Simulated scan of single mutants.
Amino acid sequence: MRIGLFVTCLVDLLRPSIGFAALKLLRATGHEVVVPTTQTCCGQPGYNAGDRRGAQRLALKLLEEFENCDYVVVPSGSCGGMIRVHYPELLKEFPQRQEAVQRLAAKTYELTDFLVHVAKLRKIPGRLTGTITYHDACSGLREMGVKRQPRALLSMVEGLSIVEMQGAEQCCGFGGTFAVKFGEISTRIVDRKCQAIEATEADAVVLGDLGCMLNIEGRLRRRGNHRTRVLHVAEVLAGVDDPQVMVKGS
């Protein structure tokens, strides 16, 4: 089995530790993992902003880069959802590529979904002592069906306990350009999410989308909360070495 890792542009530019953690987890499955060096963006920002032609160029580029992979795995439900759910519509003007587009959509998985349902990973390399709460990012939950998978994997992490927050499935207010265009509404939404996180008294909030992570962490810090860590599920499952991102007490 040949697994292609789509790192995502946010991870590459802002928190590459997530990409390396995802790579470590995929290699732990015992299968071949490839990371095309020419990969960039899935095209979602342009697609959401109405730049259909620009998004199409990026989508066709990604199609070529991962065509020889049996699976495409993404440490982001948002980017994974863009490929699986929206590429068929985005690229409908390219009838000669429709078969390839359908194959790509069918073989694209969010990271934890792939580890649970395809690779069936039974041993988690990460070890972390502390309490976490989990936020269900919108695209991963609603477009990729990711809910049970991260919790099942996190339950195997030695020393870790999970406490559920109220409204775990409610939006954090990011929504890509929504947070920019509707800043006041976004702030109200993320404040509600921060209150739910803080009410659990967990050492960290864990989730699967970097955009949501940046939004939540930024608001927690502006609210004066410098205690609660904000971690990607891949970082926790793979084990993190940087003490700045480790859960308190680990």
Score class of each variant (00 low, 15 high):
Met1Val: 03
Arg2Ser: 13
Phe6Pro: 00
Val7Ile: 14
Val7Lys: 00
Thr8Lys: 01
Val11Trp: 02
Val11Ser: 08
Leu13Asp: 01
Ser17Pro: 11
Ser17Arg: 15
Gly19Asn: 13
Gly19Tyr: 04
Phe20His: 15
Leu23Gln: 12
Lys24Pro: 15
Arg27Cys: 05
Ala28Cys: 10
Thr29Glu: 05
Gly30Thr: 11
Gly30Ala: 01
Glu32Met: 06
Pro36Asn: 10
Pro36Cys: 05
Thr37Lys: 09
Cys41Tyr: 02
Cys41Ile: 04
Tyr47Trp: 09
Tyr47Pro: 09
Ala49Leu: 04
Asp51Ile: 07
Ala55Val: 03
Ala55Ser: 09
Ala55Asp: 00
Arg57Thr: 09
Glu64Thr: 13
Glu65Lys: 12
Asn68Gly: 06
Tyr71Trp: 10
Val73Gly: 00
Gly81Ile: 07
Gly81Ser: 05
Arg84Phe: 03
Arg84Ser: 11
Pro88Thr: 14
Phe94Ala: 10
Arg97Thr: 14
Arg97Val: 10
Gln98Val: 10
Glu99Gln: 14
Ala100Leu: 11
Ala105Ser: 14
Lys107Val: 04
Thr108Leu: 01
Glu110Ile: 08
Thr112Asn: 10
Phe114Gly: 00
Phe114Arg: 00
Val116Tyr: 00
Val116Ala: 01
Val118Lys: 04
Leu121Thr: 06
Lys123Ala: 04
Ile124Trp: 00
Ile124Asn: 02
Thr129Trp: 10
Thr129Met: 10
Gly130Ser: 04
Thr131Gln: 06
Tyr134Arg: 00
Asp136Arg: 07
Asp136Phe: 08
Leu141Cys: 01
Arg142Lys: 07
Arg148Thr: 11
Pro150Glu: 01
Pro150Leu: 02
Arg151His: 09
Met156Pro: 05
Met156Val: 04
Val157Lys: 00
Leu160Met: 09
Ser161Pro: 12
Glu164Ile: 08
Gln166Lys: 13
Glu169Asn: 11
Gln170Ala: 07
Ala179Tyr: 04
Ala179Asp: 01
Val180Arg: 00
Lys181Thr: 10
Gly183Ser: 07
Thr187Ile: 12
Arg188Val: 14
Ile189Tyr: 03
Lys193Val: 05
Cys194Thr: 12
Glu198Pro: 03
Thr200Phe: 10
Ala202His: 09
Ala202Ser: 12
Ala204Trp: 08
Val205Asn: 06
Val205Leu: 02
Val205Asp: 01
Gly208Cys: 13
Asp209Met: 00
Asp209Phe: 03
Cys212Lys: 02
Ile216Thr: 08
Arg222Ile: 11
Gly224Met: 02
Arg229Met: 13
Leu231Gly: 03
His232Asn: 07
Ala234Asp: 05
Ala238Met: 08
Asp242Tyr: 14
Pro243Tyr: 14
Met246Pro: 02
Ser250Ile: 08
